[in-house]
C-alpha cells in the first residue's frame, strides 16, 4: 500500500499556540486573582472552562454548516467528512459544556438541574445534532448520506441558533448576567478575568479544531485505502476476464 500523502510539519504555529494557551488557561485560571462576589465566590473560575465550551461548540457547528453548503455546491467528499467530524467534535464540546455547567450549578444554584432556559435550550440543541448522527448512520450509500445529511444540517443550523440565542433571551434565566443576577457582562467582567477568559476561548476552540482535523485526516486516509483496495480488486477481476 503506497499511498502518498503530503508531508506536513507535525506542529503548525497555531497548534503550538493552542498548547501554550491551554497551559496558561489551566494555570492562570486556577491561580490568578478573581473578583470576590457573593454566592459565586471561587466558582467564578468556571467561566474559564464552561463558557469556552459553548464558544467552541458554536464555532465547530458553524464550520460544519459551511462545509455542508460547500458539499451541496460541489459534491466533494472532503466537505462531507469535515461536516460530520465538526458535528462530532461540537457535540462533545456541548456535552462538556453541559457537564461543567451542571457541576457549577450544583454549588451555586443548589441543584444539578434547575430547568434553566439555557440548560433546556442546550439539551434541545444537542438533540438536533444527535438526530443528525442517527440520520448519517441510517444510509448505506455514501453519496446519498452526504447529500441528505448536508441538507438536514443546513436546515438544522438556523434552528439551533434560534434555540440557543433567541429563545433563552425571552424569559428570565438563572444564569449570571440574566434576570438581575450578578454576572459577567460588560461592566462585571473585569480586566483580570478577561486576561484569562479570552485566551481560554481561543485555546479550547483551537484544541477542538485540532482534534477534528486529526479525525478528518484519519477518515480521508481510510477513504483512500478503501479506494485503492477497490481498484486493486477490480483490476484483478478485469485481468481475470481478459485471460
Amino acid at each position: 500500500m503506497n499511498i502518498e500523502l503530503k508531508k506536513k510539519s507535525v506542529l503548525n504555529w497555531w497548534k503550538i499556540l493552542a498548547i501554550l494557551l491551554l497551559f496558561y488557561t489551566v494555570i492562570g485560571g486556577l491561580l490568578m486573582e478573581v473578583p470576590r462576589r457573593d454566592i459565586l465566590n471561587e466558582s467564578i473560575r468556571n467561566l474559564y472552562f464552561h463558557v469556552p465550551m459553548w464558544f467552541g461548540m458554536i464555532i465547530m457547528l458553524t464550520i460544519s454548516a459551511v462545509a455542508s453548503i460547500g458539499y451541496l455546491s460541489n459534491s466533494k467528499s472532503r466537505f462531507d467528512i469535515i461536516a460530520s467530524e465538526m458535528v462530532n467534535m461540537g457535540a462533545i464540546f456541548g456535552i462538556l459544556g453541559l457537564i461543567t455547567g451542571m457541576l457549577w450549578a450544583e454549588y451555586t444554584w443548589g441543584k444539578f438541574w434547575s430547568g434553566d432556559p439555557k440548560q433546556k435550550a442546550s439539551v434541545a440543541g444537542l438533540l438536533i445534532y444527535f438526530g443528525y448522527m442517527v440520520l448519517r448512520a441510517s444510509f448505506s450509500d455514501d453519496q446519498l448520506r452526504a447529500r441528505v445529511s448536508a441538507v438536514f444540517s443546513i436546515l438544522a443550523y438556523p434552528t439551533f441558533i434560534v434555540l440557543i440565542f433567541v429563545l433563552p433571551r425571552l424569559v428570565d434565566s438563572l444564569h449570571p448576567g440574566n434576570g438581575g443576577n450578578p454576572g459577567f457582562n460588560a461592566y462585571d467582567l473585569d480586566a483580570r478575568m478577561r486576561m484569562v477568559f479570552y485566551p481560554a476561548v481561543i485555546a479550547f476552540s483551537l484544541l477542538g479544531v485540532w482534534i477534528a482535523t486529526l479525525r478528518i485526516r484519519i477518515r480521508t486516509i481510510d477513504n483512500l485505502v478503501i479506494d485503492k483496495n477497490y481498484e486493486k480488486e477490480n483490476s484483478v477481476i478485469l485481468d481475470h476476464k481478459v485471460k
Partner: peptide, 20 residues
C-alpha cells in the same frame, strides 16, 4: 424518507427541530 427506518427518523429529526 431517504433513510432506512424512516418513521423513527421522522420522529427523532423533527422533535428537536420543532421545539422552538
Amino acid at each position: 424518507s431517504k433513510g432506512n427506518n424512516s418513521s423513527t427518523l421522522m420522529a427523532i429529526l423533527s422533535f428537536p427541530v420543532i421545539i422552538p
